[in-house]
């Protein structure tokens, strides 16, 4: 019997190292995306309700300049290229390029934080209106996501510097890249739903 023959074999060979970090990051990223889906969904529903009644969504005297948000979007898109570069460079054991790419990714992330806080100073929006509250809550939560992504990328950078990741095992970097791509995707939705359509 085939089953019996299989059981007569010696114990199972050691399995390949399970991709625990990648799986865990994917699950956590899915949860994070759902949190933003909820937040942005509430934002759109509230805005739709106000506009449907013929009201103005943004308080009088408030403007959301498009330039900082668009520059932020372009910067985030660029950071998507650099983190892919980092993953690819580690895969080729090209460590100098990997360090450069990870450094650039972190720098781009910091630049987006800078552009968003600059945007806050330009909007003149107060939090005691529905629009202000929701815009600050959504974009502020995304800033927290960027910080988390940067910390994750930085830790993976240090681990790469320490030699933990290399051509045959770059799981940590792939996991950090996955989270970072989710950060970019959320920013793209925010850019369109808040900064462009206002």
């Amino acid at each position: 019997m085939a089953t019996t023959a299989a059981l007569a074999l010696p114990p199972a060979a050691p399995p390949a190292r399970p991709r625990i970090l990648l799986v865990g990051t994917a699950l956590a990223t899915a949860g994070t995306l759902m949190a933003f889906a909820g937040l942005i969904g509430v934002y759109l529903a509230q805005r739709h309700a106000v506009l449907a009644q013929g009201g103005a969504w943004l308080p009088e005297g408030t403007t959301i300049p498009l330039t900082p948000g668009t520059i932020g979007m372009a910067t985030m898109a660029l950071s998507g290229v650099t983190i892919w570069w980092a993953v690819d460079a580690v895969g080729r054991n090209d460590r100098p390029s990997a360090y450069l790419a990870l450094g650039l990714t972190i720098m781009f992330g910091l630049a987006v934080i800078n552009s968003t806080t600059f945007l806050y100073t330009q909007m003149g929006l107060v939090a005691n209106t529905k629009a202000g509250l929701l815009i600050y809550a959504v974009t502020g939560a995304h800033l927290a996501m960027i910080v988390a992504g940067l910390v994750y990328a930085a830790v993976m950078t240090f681990r790469t510097l320490g030699g933990e990741y290399h051509g045959r095992d770059r799981e940590g970097l792939v996991a950090a890249a996955l989270f970072w791509y989710a950060t970019i995707a959320v920013y793209a939705v925010i850019w369109y739903a808040i900064y462009v359509t206002k």
């Binding site: 899915a30 939090a127 600050y136």
Partner: peptide, 29 residues
């Protein structure tokens, strides 16, 4: 676990909104 991960973060997002609203805003939401 997957269903918790797909639904409870929506509650978390809502709690963030409520906290900002109650703590920093004027409970407009």
């Amino acid at each position: 676990s997957i269903m918790w991960l797909l639904t409870l973060p929506v509650l978390f997002g809502l709690l963030v909104l409520m906290y900002v609203d109650h703590r920093l805003g004027d409970s407009v939401f």
